[in-house]
Amino acid sequence: MRQSFLRRLAESVVILIGVALLIFIMLRVVPGNPIEIMMGEHANQSTVDRMTAELGLDKPIYVQFFRYITGALRGDFGTSYSLGKPVSSLMRSAFGNTLKLSVSAAVFAWVIGILCGVLSAVRAGGPADHIFMGFSLMGVSMPVFMTAMVLQFFFGYYLHWLPISGSGSWRNFILPAIALGWNSAGAISRLTRSTLLDVLQEDYIETARAKGLTETTVVLFHALRNTMLPVVTMMAIQFSGMLSGAVITETVFSINGIGRLSVLAISGRDIPLLQGTVLFSTAVVILGNLISDSLYSVLDPRIRREA
């Protein structure tokens, strides 16, 4: 098992290097000198030359890449062109907001998702099943910007219950958490429902029922444990996806997180910032995939023994 983990880890590192290389190449292909673009009409040639040399943009591209990678390993992602601050410190402060948003969205998604999934599985075919699955299907099919704007309009503008945007207090995070989490809740509840329905067909469930255990005990203590295996791995992937920056949610609710930072980087044609945010986000996703793969074998003794 340790061996397979190490192999997956090595693969992840290779993928991450590939990602860094791809981002780097793509951002260098953009026509025009980034310094001139950044300074606009006020550019005077000697300043442009001086800045180009200062930022090392006159060096050959492989030297630039090497510098970038060694810098990134030390946590140095260069200086943002448009905001004039180190990219790493910008990302650190943005990550705090992204973390708050992700944790609240994940809690919403998982509690609601598992609850809906279990309740519709035990009442499969009944009205509760249809209601919960309709709710899940809405979550899966509504684009995030739609959910976000409907919530803003209804709870923020119409009912005045919650703030429309910003990230000052915890109340700011309720609507964004629902907007971001609904989609995941839908996926979780559909997976929980279908897995639980499969598990409930197993022989050991029949045995538990035959022993005279109540249906609640059977579902909660016998069936749910095995149901949670695929669900937990899906949760890990979802959470890393949220942490990698919910671009749309953060933009709609004006939350200064990683996702919004990358939108800002694009509109400011800010290459170091874009490079940093995209590399960071992708690294988080790769890590999430690694954890989700490993979780499977940690949680399931059958796989643990095989591997």
């Binding site: 693969e11 993928i15 991450l16 590939g18 990602v19 791809l22 981002i23 793509m26 951002l27 292909v29 953009v30 996806g241 990698s244 920056g245 671009v247 749309i248 990358s262 939108v263 694009i266 874009l274 995209v278 986000s281 992708t282 996703v285 790769i286 995939n289």
Partner: peptide
């Protein structure tokens, strides 16, 4: 393909459209 699939899809699209 692994490298492409590792990106969050919205971000990858943003990056390509920027380029």
């Amino acid at each position: 393909a692994d490298v492409m699939l590792a990106f969050p899809s919205t971000l990858l699209a943003m990056l390509i459209v920027y380029t």
